[in-house]
Amino acid sequence: MCHRPLLIVAEGVETEDQLNRLKEQGCDYAQGYLFGRPVSADTLLEKLQSS
């Protein structure tokens, strides 16, 4: 049996204060408007192809 550490992901992070509080609590990853607004699949594909 393989034992892997449990990773914590926070969703809906909108402010630096929220991010800092999550980090203090040991949160591993975060996503939300603080990092970027949602985009359509077509826009994402265009961005990935151009980079």
Rank of each mutant, 00 (worst) to 15 (best):
E14S: 02
Y29S: 03
C2S: 15
K47G: 06
S40V: 11
D42W: 08
L22F: 03
P38A: 04
L7G: 09
A30T: 07
E16R: 15
Q25F: 10
A30C: 15
I8C: 10
K23N: 14
D28S: 09
D17C: 13
V13L: 08
L7H: 15
A10C: 15
R37P: 01
Q18R: 06
E11R: 09
L6C: 10
E14L: 00
L45W: 12
L22I: 01
M1A: 07
Q18P: 02
L44C: 07
Q18F: 02
C27M: 08
F35T: 01
V13P: 03
E46D: 11
A30S: 14
K23C: 12
D17V: 13
L6F: 15
L48A: 12
G12K: 14
K47I: 13
R37Y: 02
L45F: 11
V13G: 04
G26Y: 15
G32P: 00
R37C: 00
G32K: 01
L34G: 01
G32T: 00
A41M: 14
G26T: 06
L6D: 12
T43M: 10
G26D: 13
V9Y: 03
P38N: 02
D28V: 11
Y29D: 03
A30W: 02
C2K: 12
R21D: 14
N20K: 14
E16V: 09
M1F: 07
G12D: 05
V9K: 01
A30H: 06
S50E: 04
R37S: 01
C27F: 14
N20Y: 12
L34D: 00
G36C: 05
A41Q: 14
Y29A: 12
N20V: 08
E46S: 10
A30M: 06
E46N: 05
Q49R: 08
E14C: 03
D42F: 11
C2Q: 12
P38S: 06
K23V: 11
L19F: 08
E46W: 04
K47M: 09
Q49A: 06
C2W: 13
G32E: 00
C2I: 10
L19G: 03
L22Q: 01
V39E: 07
M1L: 09
S51C: 15
S50D: 09
C2T: 12
Y33F: 06
F35I: 00
L44R: 09
Q49T: 03
E11K: 09
L7K: 15
L22D: 03
L34T: 01
E46T: 12
D42Q: 10
D28R: 08
E16C: 07
M1E: 03
C2D: 08
V13T: 11
L6P: 13
G32F: 00
D28M: 05
